[in-house]
Amino acid sequence: MRNILNLLSIVFVFSNISYAQKIEPIDVKEIMEKVADWQIDHFRDTYSGREKPHHPLAWTNGALYIGMVKWAAMADDDKYYNWLKNIGEEKEWQLHKRKYHADDHTVGQMYIELYRKFKDEKMIKPTKEQFTFIRMHPSQSILNWKTPYHQDRWNWCDALFMSPPVWAMLYNLTGEQEYLDFMMDEYKASTDFLFDKKEHLYYRDERYMGKLDNGTKIFWSRGNGWVFAGLSNIMNELEPQSKEYKYFLKIYKKMAKKLLEIQTPEGHWAMSLLGQEFYPTPETSGSAFYIYGLAWGINNGILDKHTYIGTVEKGWNAMVGHVTKEGMLGYVQPIGGEPGNAWADKTEVYGTGAFLSAGSEIYKLFDGKLE
């Protein structure tokens, strides 16, 4: 009996090594630098079988920049800020080509963060002009999938990461209530349409409502990761006592509680959030966004540290375990809109962005000194 107990103890210890590994701020910074440098070196690579690299202003790279600018604020030299500035200058600080489409607004978050540091008005002028046009000429489309011009509004959950934070940032910068009012109206419409009030998760879009996968509702991990990280980025821009902040906080807390319940034993979140047994493969992009949002919540006094820190620690150690010795983050699910597959030797730029965002909050959480 004693031998059996000893064997079980050994199994338990080895199965929890990643969870038990102590997180040191210096190690967080080191792995973030390695991942950031690898991604810059491979910025124009093709991914997931694509024939051409992503456009520098595409949402894929926009998500990368959001994490990279957080890393730039932590780094010991300005090369990361310079890299981001060069992209903006080459593209004349324009957003991507579709005026209303949320994906093509994503890069605006990086532009505004650079403006905050360098105070150069040209960095945000095109974004302000385009968003002023949109709020003065709002789309009249409906949120049902594949109706005319349907993606001119936020009718897929990924959009809630891409565009709303830009609106909140512009409100914060300018003090113009119209930016905030537009964002609130559209965000509420999207949430009323896509949020499952029982599961406290978002459907990716209308196509997945009422549809089952192995008997479970389909809640795509990265899709909900987009939402959860976006909530943190929006609330960063709002006054905590405001009614708008409290609206987002309510959604955030519901999602955080659900995420606590459904984390896998390995530390990641399943690609179909309610279908762990059917999707055992690790996935790092959605999981990294959850770690970012949860760590942010602890750092801002929103989530109870005792309750959530184990989840965050376990998740971060799992993510670090999927970084190659060269600095590539593996197990990033390719572009898509539903649960699927991921591979140890495949990555994507938005996964790197999520990882760097997560690292920025992990660094603070474990007593890093970030000014």
Rank of each mutant, 00 (worst) to 15 (best):
106 T>A: 09
220 W>R: 01
150 H>F: 08
171 Y>V: 04
297 G>R: 02
281 T>M: 12
42 H>E: 10
220 W>F: 12
329 L>H: 13
348 E>C: 06
119 K>V: 02
64 L>I: 12
108 G>L: 03
2 R>S: 11
38 W>F: 15
72 A>W: 00
305 K>N: 08
82 N>S: 07
117 K>H: 12
253 K>D: 09
233 N>W: 11
208 Y>D: 03
276 Q>W: 07
96 H>S: 06
221 S>T: 15
62 G>F: 01
294 L>T: 12
241 Q>L: 11
276 Q>M: 12
271 M>D: 09
31 I>P: 03
231 L>S: 04
48 S>L: 04
61 N>M: 04
44 R>D: 13
129 E>M: 03
110 M>R: 00
228 F>G: 01
337 G>H: 04
255 M>S: 11
346 K>V: 08
96 H>C: 00
157 C>E: 03
6 N>K: 09
246 K>E: 08
22 K>R: 11
308 Y>I: 12
371 E>I: 07
334 P>D: 09
229 A>Q: 15
12 F>N: 13
29 K>A: 15
288 A>D: 10
353 G>R: 04
269 W>F: 14
213 D>P: 02
56 P>W: 02
274 L>T: 14
200 H>S: 13
306 H>A: 15
263 Q>Y: 15
82 N>G: 10
4 I>H: 13
35 V>M: 04
37 D>W: 08
271 M>Y: 01
84 L>F: 09
98 R>V: 05
274 L>K: 13
264 T>P: 02
321 G>K: 13
151 Q>C: 07
279 Y>D: 05
49 G>W: 06
317 N>R: 10
353 G>W: 04
309 I>C: 01
109 Q>T: 09
262 I>K: 11
163 S>E: 07
66 I>F: 06
228 F>K: 03
196 D>T: 14
264 T>I: 10
298 I>Q: 01
38 W>Q: 13
230 G>H: 01
267 G>T: 07
198 K>L: 12
110 M>V: 13
115 Y>W: 08
348 E>Y: 03
33 E>I: 08
278 F>M: 08
242 S>R: 08
275 G>L: 06
94 Q>Y: 02
360 S>G: 05
223 G>V: 05
10 I>L: 10
366 F>M: 07
347 T>N: 06
123 M>L: 14
